[in-house]
Structure formats: structure tokens, C-alpha cells
């Protein structure tokens, strides 16, 4: 077996804010790697700077020190190989589902027919066919996030980054969407090659991830990096599942 192709290298990332000459450290020496086939969750309590970390990893913010390399190059926010899914969905309220999904393709100047075909494919993949010409305000929360996911997949990224993608949804919708994300992930025909997700829910992390990175709070430091080797589909009722959840809880508290 060959080594999996490394995608993302996070090298000693530190982030501080300065106010009145005082330094407030948010993230301290975060260091890990992400390879193809990885589904990694970063989990931490509030104040662990996990959302800031994600914004740094996708290039929306600069670290105070350290660096983030994507395929050996410093990361840039508009990197077409990295796509992002947001907690608040971040759909453009004045664009239809199709137009929202086409957003990244339009930015890449993909010609119209190809763009439409690609949008159609991913709208179908997330089960939104039928809602192509609906505006976000006509959709339920779960469907809005499906649009967010389709929009991210449509640029066919190598790496999919998700920032608390299920935390604005009700518990049932969230669980349903988690399963569908896993369904999409298990389909080798579909992008991405790796997923990096930030969450505050330990159960969610153990349910989804192959690897969990645990952060402490204020500042966010890496407490542990755990490989979750439970077979899929995972059942949240099983003792092994709860073993992992308990272990992470004890690391954070």
C-alpha cells in the first residue's frame, strides 16, 4: 500500500489578537496533517478558537505565526481546490438554488452549459432536484444547508471544509443530514478527497470522523489527536461509541 497523498499541512499555527498593546492568544501551536481519504473533525469547547482555526486553514485569515500549506503551497482564500460550508449556510438570498450552486463555477468562468450541467448534477446528488428555481427563503433549514453542500461540491474540491454545518438545524434534520453527508462521502465518484469539519459536538465528531483533533480552550491548544476506528455505519447506542465520547469529554473537561 502506498502512503496516502498529503493535502494539507498545518505548521505551528498561532493566532493572537492585540488590544491596547496586550496580546490575547486564541490559538497556540496547532500542528497536524490531512491526507486524501481523511475525514477529520476538530472538536473543542467554545473559546477554543476552532472557527478561527478553520478560517485560517482556508485562507480567510492570516495566522500570527506558523503557516498552512495546501499541496505544498501557502493556502489562499480563493483556492478552487478548497470549498467551504458554513454554519449560517451563507446562501445569497437574491439567487435561486441553481444560481447559488453555480456561484463558484461562475467565478471560475466555467462556460454556461457546463456550469448548468455541473450544478444539476450536484443539486441532484444532495436530493434537491425539484427546487432548482426556489429562493433560499422558500427552503427549510435542512434544504438550505443542502444547497450549501451542493455549492461546495460543485467546484469539485479536493478538500471540503465545514464550519459547524449542522448546528443551526433542529436535531432531527441535523441527524438526517449527517447520514446523507456520509452517503455522499462514501461515493468515490463524488468529490471531495478529504473533509475537515469543525464542531462543538463530541458525539457528532465521533459519529462522523476517522480522526478527531481535540482542542482546549483559551487559548486553543491541541490536547489530543485520536483515530476513531469504529466500523460504519456507527450506532450511537453502542458502548464502544460511548467509550470514545467519554474519552474526549474527559480530555476537554
Amino acid at each position: 500500500m502506498t502512503e496516502p497523498h498529503p493535502l494539507l499541512k498545518v505548521k505551528d499555527v498561532t493566532k493572537s489578537y492585540f488590544e491596547d498593546g496586550k496580546e490575547f492568544k486564541i490559538l497556540d501551536l496547532i500542528r497536524f496533517e490531512l491526507a486524501e481519504q481523511d475525514f477529520v473533525c476538530v472538536v473543542g469547547p467554545s473559546g477554543s478558537g476552532k472557527s478561527t482555526l478553520l478560517r485560517i486553514l482556508v485562507g480567510l485569515e492570516k495566522p500570527t505565526s506558523g503557516e498552512v500549506l495546501f499541496e505544498g503551497q501557502p493556502i489562499r482564500a480563493d483556492n478552487p481546490q478548497v470549498a467551504m460550508v458554513f454554519q449560517s449556510f451563507a446562501l445569497f438570498p437574491w439567487l435561486t438554488v441553481t444560481q447559488n450552486v453555480e456561484l463558484g463555477l461562475e467565478a471560475q468562468n466555467v462556460p454556461l452549459p457546463a456550469r448548468q450541467a455541473r450544478a444539476r448534477k450536484f443539486i441532484d446528488a444532495v436530493g434537491l432536484t425539484g427546487f432548482e428555481n426556489a429562493f433560499p427563503r422558500e427552503l427549510s433549514g435542512g434544504m438550505k444547508q443542502r444547497v450549501g453542500i451542493a455549492r461546495a461540491l460543485a467546484i469539485e474540491p479536493l478538500l471540503l471544509c465545514m464550519d459547524e454545518p449542522f448546528s443551526s438545524l433542529d436535531p432531527l434534520t441535523a441527524q438526517n443530514l449527517r447520514d446523507e453527508i456520509l452517503q455522499l462521502w462514501s461515493d468515490p465518484q463524488l468529490p471531495p478527497k478529504a473533509v475537515l469539519m469543525v464542531t462543538h459536538s463530541i458525539e457528532e465528531a465521533v459519529y462522523l470522523a476517522d480522526r478527531v483533533i481535540v482542542l482546549s480552550s483559551r487559548p486553543g491548544r491541541m490536547v489530543a489527536e485520536l483515530v476513531i476506528d469504529l466500523p460504519r455505519p456507527r450506532n450511537r447506542k453502542e458502548p464502544e461509541f460511548y467509550g470514545w465520547v467519554d474519552e474526549i469529554y474527559s480530555l476537554i473537561v
Binding site: R55, V58, G59, L60, A77, D78, P80, V82, A83, M84, F86, A90, F92, L103, G104, A107, Q108, R151, I155
Partner: peptide, 9 residues
């Protein structure tokens, strides 16, 4: 952020 990460410039 969505605008930036999807390359809207």
C-alpha cells in the same frame, strides 16, 4: 467569507 472562498472578486 462564502464570496471570498468561492472566488468572487
Amino acid at each position: 467569507a462564502a464570496g471570498s472562498s468561492f472566488g468572487l472578486t
